[in-house]
């Protein structure tokens, strides 16, 4: 059997399918809670994405390396220990280097442990595959998750706060307070609107990609 290249067709697929056809948020509907909680602004959403990516990719690799030694009856506990250790690492790094964002994310970094996407990928993929594909699968799924997070937070920050990445993009003179006509949409900051935005993304995606429509 010929040796498979690092970025063979199959491996590329691992990276690309979670972005659209098998997106963890919009198709598998996992990780919704954090998608609602951290998407008020763009910056925390991006930091959250990177955190999940780091945790998921390395947890996938570690579990994949251990896959033949873990007794299947206690595998959940082992996975949790690995994930928890990685989450604590990420949390400490965030606190050290981007303290203000880490304060904004508050408990949600710690709650990465309970993110269904992570347990799902460990169970479904890392336990049955080699470390390199597992790493790509982790990166791909975290990217799919992050893509949704970034789209949602883009609209929520733009319409809810009139800014992007913390910078004002809607001119101050437009606001009612300054004699204009515009007003920020307060509902965008509330969680229900995150849910509706995710719903709109799911709607749009299924409109473009008819195969995804459930029978």
């Amino acid at each position: 059997m010929a040796k498979e290249g690092l970025f063979s067709k199959k491996n590329q697929k691992l990276l690309s399918t979670p972005l659209n056809g098998n997106n963890p948020v919009t198709v598998q509907v996992l990780g919704i809670c954090s998608a609602l909680a951290v998407t008020v602004q763009l910056k925390p959403a991006v930091v959250m994405t990177l955190s999940v990516m780091a945790v998921l990719a390395f947890a996938n690799v570690i579990i994949s390396l251990l896959r033949n030694t873990i007794p299947s009856r206690i595998r959940i506990i082992v996975q949790l220990v690995v994930v928890a250790a990685l989450v604590i690492l990420v949390d400490q790094i965030l606190k050290a280097f981007v303290y203000d964002v880490s304060k904004q994310l508050s408990v949600f970094v710690g709650l990465i442990i309970t993110n269904c996407i992570i347990m799902g990928r460990l169970e479904a993929f890392a336990l049955g595959n080699k470390p390199w594909p597992a790493f790509l699968d982790g990166v791909g799924n975290a990217a799919g998750y992050g893509l949704v997070l970034i789209i949602v937070s883009f609209f929520r920050e733009l319409l809810g706060s009139g800014s992007l990445w913390g910078y004002k993009v809607i001119p101050e003179s437009w606001y009612v307070a300054n004699g204009g006509f515009y007003e920020n949409n307060g509902m965008m900051i509330l969680p229900p609107m995150a849910l509706i935005t995710v719903g709109a993304i799911i709607w749009f995606q299924r409109w473009k990609n008819r195969d995804l429509i459930e029978k």
Partner: peptide, 10 residues
């Protein structure tokens, strides 16, 4: 309800 939560001051 949308206006009520989105633009409460109005």
């Amino acid at each position: 309800a949308f206006l009520f939560f989105a633009y409460p001051s109005h």
